[in-house]
Amino acid sequence: MPGPVYHPVATGIASDTVTQHAGPASIVLWGGWFCPFTQRTWAALEAKGIPYQYREVNPYLKEKDFIDISPHGLTPGLQVDGRPLHDSTVINEFLEEAGSALGAHPAVPSLWPNSGDGPYEKARARLWIDHVNKAAVPAFIRLLQAASPPSQAAALAAWTTALDHITAHCQGPFFFGNEISLVDLAIAPWAVRDFILCEKRGFRRDQVSGWTAWAEALERHPAVQRTTSNRDKYLEFNQTFMRNEDHSAVAKAARAGEQII
Rank of each mutant, 00 (worst) to 15 (best):
F94I: 05
F174M: 03
G3T: 04
A107Y: 07
S151N: 13
K122N: 05
P113M: 05
C170P: 11
H169E: 12
L61R: 12
A168C: 02
R40L: 10
V5L: 09
F237I: 01
R201A: 05
I180Y: 02
A251R: 10
T11P: 04
D184C: 13
F140M: 08
W190S: 11
F237S: 09
E216P: 06
P2Y: 01
V57G: 03
S209G: 06
R201C: 05
V90Q: 01
Y234R: 05
G118N: 12
L156A: 06
P76Q: 11
A136Y: 07
S209T: 13
T240H: 12
K233Y: 04
P2Q: 08
P222G: 12
G116E: 12
A191K: 13
L78A: 00
E46D: 07
E236M: 10
W159V: 03
P84S: 00
N133V: 01
G210H: 04
H105D: 15
H72A: 08
I13R: 06
A191V: 12
T212C: 01
T212M: 00
L218T: 14
F34L: 10
Q53R: 15
A217G: 14
E216C: 10
K252M: 05
R193L: 11
A157H: 14
T228E: 12
A158W: 02
T19V: 15
L85H: 03
R142G: 04
A98H: 12
T38M: 11
A136C: 08
S26P: 00
G77Q: 03
V132W: 02
R124D: 06
Q152F: 06
N58C: 10
T89I: 09
G49M: 07
H247K: 06
H72T: 03
A213Q: 14
N230Y: 00
H21D: 05
K48T: 05
G31S: 13
V137S: 11
P138C: 01
D232T: 11
L144C: 12
L111H: 13
F176D: 11
G31R: 05
A217Y: 05
A43G: 00
V208N: 08
W42L: 08
T167D: 10
A44K: 01
D117H: 09
W128M: 09
I180V: 15
K134Y: 07
T11A: 11
R201N: 10
T212Y: 03
L61Q: 15
K64E: 14
V5C: 09
A251S: 13
P59C: 06
V9N: 09
G23L: 05
S100F: 03
I141A: 07
P51T: 03
A213S: 15
L111I: 12
P138S: 02
G257W: 02
T212L: 06
G202I: 09
T240F: 08
R83V: 13
D130M: 07
A191P: 10
A186E: 00
C35P: 04
G77C: 01
Q20W: 14
A136L: 07
G99Y: 04
L182N: 10
V224I: 15
N230D: 14
V108N: 12
E46G: 08
G177E: 04
T41E: 02
A191M: 14
T41S: 14
L85V: 02
L163F: 06
T167C: 15
H105L: 11
E121M: 13
Y120M: 10
L85C: 00
L61V: 11
W128T: 00
A251Y: 02
